[in-house]
Design a binder for these strands. Structure first.
Lengths: 203, 203
DNA sequence: TTATATACGGAGGGTTCCTCCGTTTAACAA
DNA sequence: TTGTTAAACGGAGGAACCCTCCGTATATAA
């Protein structure tokens, strides 16, 4: 019942897995109480591990951020289908965008990591960025098909906008500002008829 | 005819002014051919001056960026009134937002500097950030008064959006993406009647 | 010419990033 | 158990950057 195709691969070392886990948890705590710019050295130090060990497990900063926030990203991506099930596609998209802002509000690190993933060289592999793009694409497609928004909207544009809105998330008042911008953007996405109708109650 | 109120202040030293000028020009060249993240050490080195000299003239990175791009920022701010003179306020706002993107497209450094100014602690002094805010506020006020956009739009929100759109200006395709987003945002700013009218030619 | 406020220069300490490689240790076979 | 070996560890160390501090040099004004 060996899964290996050829040769005899060893099973991964137990200490390796333990340390990887330890690093992820330490990083999570460090992001929370030092801030999103905490140094990788600091994370290694807190974990009681050598810096070399950290770099072997996570060759880039984004890699460890991704590991830390995998669950959050999954939730956010999953919320897309959940929202679609319970309301019109246009509203689902609107809610999801607000949700995006709320997620970033608590975990600012995600924003910059997403930023470098979305436009990055390798968009192919199933990274967190890819899952988020899938989610927003689904919402945009459905909303477009339902006539809730114009049919020619580029989902990546919207994602860029969302990431952009959360840029500078330290400045006071950024959150309400981002939410207002989402409302405006959402209005701009609607075909003129829909807006006119919404303006006079529903028909 | 002494301008000084009290005591006898000396006139600024000639070498000081020369070096300041030299630093600004060197920085401009360095931003252009090394990139927006060129180190301050590198700029001082290229200028043939000590790092201490650079820091005395420009205590922060933003300070030197501001000196380098003062003219560009002035032009951009000035464009607001020029545009207002030649077309309806709503269109002027729309054009100005596109112009903003074009300016950033060539000088990426401005974006991050603006970012830290706009939300920064001291919004009071007449910095570049302040002049940009004044420009966009003027446009928003006029457009609101003319009924081209809704009257309750917060100009700082728009500026944040613009800065956000230009975030990640290295990624391929960011510029057309930013322009599309501006169009959408602009549509969202319009009162429903205006959009409906525009959709069917003009009335 | 002299006095002195101004400006210069760069050494140096602190931080972060990341690589490299000698040492340790877990997994597996005999 | 013991030996072999691949995997993982650790941290020294070089490079880059930031910024301060203070001894030295010089332009200005008397």
């Amino acid at each position: 019942m060996n899964v290996e195709a050829k040769g005899q691969a060893r099973k991964p070392r137990a200490d390796g897995q333990r340390n990887r886990e330890r690093l992820v948890e330490t990083a999570k705590a460090a992001f929370a109480d030092v801030g999103p710019d905490v140094s990788l050295d600091e994370i290694a130090r807190r974990a009681g591990l050598g810096i070399g060990t950290l770099y072997r497990h996570f060759p880039t900063r984004d890699a460890i951020v991704e590991a830390v926030y995998r669950r959050e990203v999954d939730e956010l991506a999953g919320a897309a289908t959940r929202l679609l099930a319970s309301r019109p596609a246009g509203e689902a998209l609107h809610h999801w965008m607000r949700l995006f802002v709320d997620y970033i509000a608590t975990k600012k690190v995600i924003a910059s990591a997403l930023g470098s993933m979305v436009g990055g060289a390798s968009e192919l592999y199933a990274s967190s960025g890819a899952r988020i793009i899938q989610a927003i694409s689904l919402l945009v497609d459905r909303a477009g098909a339902a006539g809730d928004i114009r049919p020619d909207v580029n989902p990546k544009d919207l994602l860029r906008a969302l990431i952009g809105f959360t840029y500078g998330a330290d400045n006071v008042g950024w959150r309400p500002s981002a939410l207002r911008l989402i409302d405006i953007l959402m209005d701009g996405l609607k075909p003129a008829e829909v807006r006119a109708a919404a303006d006079q109650g529903q028909d």
